[in-house]
């Protein structure tokens, strides 16, 4: 069981308790409790507007939560800018629309944060960047600009850019939703490799094949609530909740 347990707050990678988020009158997240162990891989799915993106954007404070408690790697997320920046240093994020910096080359995209935030010298940052570009299998594109790359390549650069900060947790916000079908596999392969190496990952995705292959736990959200969570084999075969079964039948049988 992964209910709220105060003792886990210090040791868990991410500990969320009683999280609520409002946009004006709209109640985007309702009483979310979630604990992610170090090294655990979580896939979050659910219909559009269910709050899954909002949930992971709360984890690195791209969204401010209205109530509840979020503890990331033992540091509580509150209004303390030092805490926020400290957590962001350790939490990488990959976006649906890549969000690479278009005015910089691939290499500059990768060395920027290590040099500015971690104060790594340029030579060291470049070596690190080339290592991770190698890992996402596009070392030869280092001197190109993002617009010169395909969507799949851009997303892999975005993953490498996040990895260059050597984060302990990686958040993926629908990383393959904006990609042409033939490019989805190359991105999922990189993510699966990352998962197999023990990275703590929270992925919002509808790629159920990836969930089966890499996830330790699948979470289904609807209307701002966590409706169901289970290991993938149980999640796909014996989902308990009617809404989950309906969602699964919609995305699996077509």
């Amino acid at each position: 069981m992964n209910g709220p347990d105060p003792s886990q707050a210090e040791t868990a990678a991410i500990h969320i308790a009683g999280l609520n988020k409002h946009y004006g009158a709209f109640h985007a997240l309702r009483d979310i409790d979630l604990t992610v162990r170090r090294g655990e891989k979580i896939v979050v799915c659910g219909p559009s507007g269910s709050g899954k993106s909002t949930l992971i954007r709360c984890i690195n404070r791209l969204e401010e939560h209205s109530a509840g408690r979020i503890v990331v790697l033992g540091t509580e997320l509150n209004d303390d800018v030092g805490n926020i920046e400290g957590i962001r240093r350790e939490v990488g994020m990959v976006f649906q629309h890549f969000n690479l910096f278009p005015h910089m080359t691939v290499l500059e995209n990768c060395v920027l944060a290590p040099m500015l935030v971690r104060k790594v010298p340029r030579s060291e940052a470049e070596a690190l960047a080339r290592k991770y570009l190698e890992k996402v299998r596009i070392p030869e594109q280092a001197d190109k600009y993002p617009a010169q790359l395909s969507g799949g390549q851009q997303q892999r650069v975005a993953i490498a850019r996040a990895l260059c900060m050597t984060p302990q947790i990686m958040l993926f916000d629908e990383p393959t939703s904006a990609l042409d079908p033939e490019m989805i596999a190359e991105v999922l392969d990189v993510m699966a490799t990352l998962a197999s190496e023990g990275m703590t990952m929270v992925c919002v995705t509808h790629e159920m094949g990836f969930a089966r292959r890499a996830a330790d736990r699948v979470i289904f959200m609807d209307k701002g609530e966590i409706v169901e969570q289970a290991p993938p084999e149980r999640f796909f075969t014996t989902a308990q909740n009617e809404r989950t079964r309906q969602f699964l039948s919609q995305i699996l049988n077509h």
């Binding site: 690195n60 791209l62 939490v91 690479l100 500015l116």
Partner: peptide, 12 residues
Amino acid sequence: GQEEASMALGLS
């Protein structure tokens, strides 16, 4: 998304 990406990377 540009600012979000830079914030997510820890830039001030």
